[in-house]
Design a protein around this nucleic acid. Structure first.
Length: 763
DNA sequence: TTAGCGCATCTTTTT
DNA sequence: GATGCGCTAA
């Protein structure tokens, strides 16, 4: 470290004086286990940053600090801030997400587990696609065995460290599956695991599962890392699952310097196996733990903090914690009520526009938070119309686009010819006349001769004859030529640029002159630029294609290629990805029953508490001003759905709501859903309906009537809040789905889901 | 045997 | 809005 850098180190007085007592105590805590229960906005990241800086100042080698987070965003932010405090030494800290850090370790130790260090990482799409083909091979009904469900069962098992054999031999699990009429899941799990292994591939859960196996079966390896990491820190501890917790516990068993930071009120990943119990178990596993609570909120106004507390207080399971703030009261929470999703978009966009003008704010001061990614559309359109720049985090991320995944599949297959999913993706791309049945034949030949698929492809002449031989042979030659580049030691960019051209991917996209084709071409170019950046970045020590793939497969939405110098944008994202962030003004939108709280969550887990914590997380993102919005109807799958306001609106203590300012825009909505493909437009035309205008705005002051159940019969006369008078022509009951077709005087026939419909029966 | 088209189906959240 | 599946023409 040079003199100048040393100068940037904060001295004790500088930073300690800015902390309150519990914060300072957490920073200065020396050896031994430490648990920090940190409420929202309590300066948690600052404490963690200073703590690490303090350790380094006191002589701890950065190489011997392991700091784990959940998102790339969070770890990038932390690294940046530590660098600000201690200089470039911060780069040496082992810091990253659980998945990226342990992927790195697995890559180093791969041979112990029978993998090579070039192993592929299957993303969720790869996993599901593999499962689909296994389900097909077993001739199981894909209606009962849905890839999604099977995948979730397997994932859940892995997160509890249940191997395929454990799964099959566990009577309780088997009884469970039997009850769900899916007793073959164990077999599917076993085959899935085998196929992943044969493909030299790990899925996301394997990265943690296999780390556990590595540390369990190879004490020497465990010993090495146990001694290496003198200090272990875990951020967002409430979101760790059993698998993650066991890894960190093992790693810190020698030095016992483990510091976990969490807030049980913000645990929102139970669906991924997160286990609040970990917080409770922690005190059992480390009886000498020092527990520090950070309860003062520095982020939000009094109104926001108190409103958040009024919501979370309804949860039964929680640790004792009193969050408070010394900040100003601030303004009340606005409630925006819209007639449709498009109008909701306009109301929010207008509110942003006006607030921006009045208070001279920047776009980046605003965030729109929603429960599901699909909700972003109406806000995009409205913001665009007002000329407000925005960015969307998440959703269909850059790395999930077809053209990107296609090129990445080529790169993956070049590095790892056993990667079955990559193979399936590229064997006939661009079209070279190798169809499904040919691929199936290759697979048969491979399993008959007990060889990897690639061995058959590379020597296709020995296994088949006929017309398909030529294109397969050409494909094999192509891949071999790519491999040679890698072996010659060319860097990731050189290889990738060559592959993009030689594979024909670029040419095919270039010839597609449609708007979509153009943007795909640009996306591929952008990926190549990204690879160039990776290669040119002095921080990446390993510039091989393999290293690039490892880093890129763990990137997701948070790490979109940046639009650089243009950061003044309104941010839109799901509440899940908003955790850890803060914005001056926040809009929580789509506050409708069954959307937020999500219907699925209520049906499958009966867990309203997690949804409520999610609401709590959303509220506490706001610094100065908070708005809620909901729509009375919204398009879903090309259909109009009637909505009830969310019960969560009622759970906020009304004294924090600005009920007098409930906004209601004019309903002159043509409600044309955005049509991206002509094909779907034709399909949608048949269900098109004419909107009705002028619904009397009703103000939810007293509360909302809970959804009624109706005893409808054909021939009943009904009144609908929005469509007027009508007569029921048909009733359909399909499981929990109850649909009524009603012929309205004004708008013709409508099919309504009864749970959503605002219907009144006329006697 | 492959490629292309129309149809049906399913939607939570993330690494 | 997106994706998989099955039918049909070449």
């Amino acid at each position: 470290m040079n003199q100048l850098e040393k100068h940037t180190i904060l001295n004790h007085n500088d930073y300690l004086s800015t902390l309150n007592d519990p914060q300072r105590e957490a920073v200065l805590h020396g050896e031994g286990p430490l648990m920090i229960i940190a409420g929202a906005g309590s300066g948690k990241t600052r404490v963690l940053t200073y703590r690490i800086a303090h350790l380094i100042e006191n002589g701890v080698d950065p190489f011997r600090i392991l700091s784990l987070t959940f998102t790339n965003k969070a770890s990038g932010e932390m690294r940046h801030r530590i660098e600000g405090a201690v200089g470039t030494e911060a780069r040496n800290i082992w810091m990253g997400t659980f998945h990226s850090v342990f992927a790195k370790i697995l890559r180093i130790e791969a041979r112990y587990l029978g993998y090579t260090s070039d192993f592929s990482i299957y993303d969720t799409d790869d996993s599901k696609s593999l499962l689909r083909s296994i389900i097909k091979e077993y001739n199981l009904d894909d209606k009962t065995y849905k890839a999604n469900v099977v995948f979730n069962r397997i994932s859940g098992a892995k997160n509890r460290l249940v191997s395929a054999d454990d799964y099959i031999n566990n009577p309780a699990i088997q009884a469970d599956d039997e009850a769900a009429k899916m007793k073959e899941i164990g077999r599917l799990y076993k085959t899935y695991a085998t196929r992943c292994f044969q493909a030299n591939a790990m899925d996301f859960d394997d990265l943690l599962f296999n780390t556990n196996v590595l540390f369990r079966d190879f004490p020497d390896v465990l010993y090495k890392y146990q001694h290496k990491f003198q200090h272990v820190m875990v951020d967002e501890f409430q979101d760790t699952n059993v698998s993650q917790y066991l890894i960190t516990r093992k790693l810190s068993a020698v030095h016992r310097n483990i510091c976990v930071v969490g807030d049980d009120a913000q645990s929102i990943y139970a669906f991924r196996g997160a286990n609040i119990e970990n917080i409770l178990n922690f005190e059992k596993d480390f009886p000498d733990v020092r527990t520090i609570k950070l309860e003062q909120n520095y982020r939000s106004t009094g109104t926001i903090v108190n409103a958040a507390n009024s919501v979370i207080a309804r949860n039964k399971s929680q640790l004792k914690k009193e969050t408070f703030t010394a900040n100003e009261e601030g303004s009340l929470i606005d409630v925006l009520k819209a007639g449709s999703d498009n109008e909701e978009g306009r109301l929010v966009a207008t509110a942003i526009f006006e607030e921006k003008m009045q208070k001279a704010l920047r776009n980046e001061n605003f965030a729109i938070l929603y429960r599901t990614n699909a909700q972003s559309r109406s806000f995009e359109e409205a913001l665009r119309k007002l000329g407000i720049k925005y960015r969307i985090i998440g959703g269909q991320s850059f790395y999930q686009r077809k053209e990107i995944k296609d090129l990445l599949a080529y790169l993956r297959f070049t590095v790892n010819q056993r990667d079955e999913e990559a193979f399936k993706r590229i064997i006939n791309l661009p079209k070279r006349g190798i169809g499904d049945s040919t691929v199936a034949k290759i697979a048969v030949a491979a399993s008959e001769n007990d060889l990897p698929i690639w061995d058959v492809v590379a020597n296709i002449g020995n296994y088949a004859s006929g017309r398909t031989i030529t294109p397969i042979d050409q494909f094999a030659t192509l891949i071999k030529s790519f491999k040679i580049l890698v072996e010659e030691g060319k860097d990731a960019y050189e290889v990738a640029a060559h592959i993009a051209k030689a594979s024909g991917i670029l040419r095919e996209l270039y010839e597609d002159k449609t708007v979509e084709g153009l943007s795909r071409y640009e996306n591929v170019q952008e990926l190549l630029n990204g690879i160039k950046e990776f290669v040119d970045n002095p921080e990446s020590e390993d510039k091989t294609l393999s290293a690039f793939l490892q880093s890129v497969s763990l990137l997701t939405n948070a790490d979109e290629p940046d639009d650089n110098n243009d950061n003044d944008r309104v941010t839109m994202m799901t509440i899940h990805s908003a955790k850890g962030l803060e914005f001056r003004n926040v809009f929580i939108v789509g506050l409708e029953e069954d959307l937020f709280p999500s219907q699925m969550m209520l049906e499958s887990r009966q867990d309203l508490e997690e949804e409520r914590r999610l609401f709590y997380v959303a509220i506490t993102r706001a610094e100065k001003r908070l708005s809620f919005s909901y729509a009375e109807s919204r398009y879903q799958w090309g259909r109009l759905k009637m909505c009830e306001p969310s019960r969560f609106l009622l759970e906020v203590d009304p004294k924090f709501l600005n009920a007098s300012r409930i906004l209601h825009g004019p309903e002159r909505d043509s409600s044309q859903p955005a049509a991206s493909s002509a094909r779907n437009l034709v399909q949608r035309k048949s269900t098109e309906y004419k909107p009705v205008s002028n619904v009397a705005p009703h103000i939810p002051s007293e509360g909302f009537v809970p959804t009624d159940t109706f005893d409808l019969a054909e021939g009943d006369k009904v009144e609908h809040l929005k469509f007027g008078f009508g007569e029921v022509t048909k009733i359909e009951v399909n499981g929990s789905d109850r649909k009524a077709t009603v012929k309205f005087d004004l708008v013709g026939e409508k099919t309504l889901l009864l749970s959503f419909a605002k219907l009144r029966i006329l006697k």
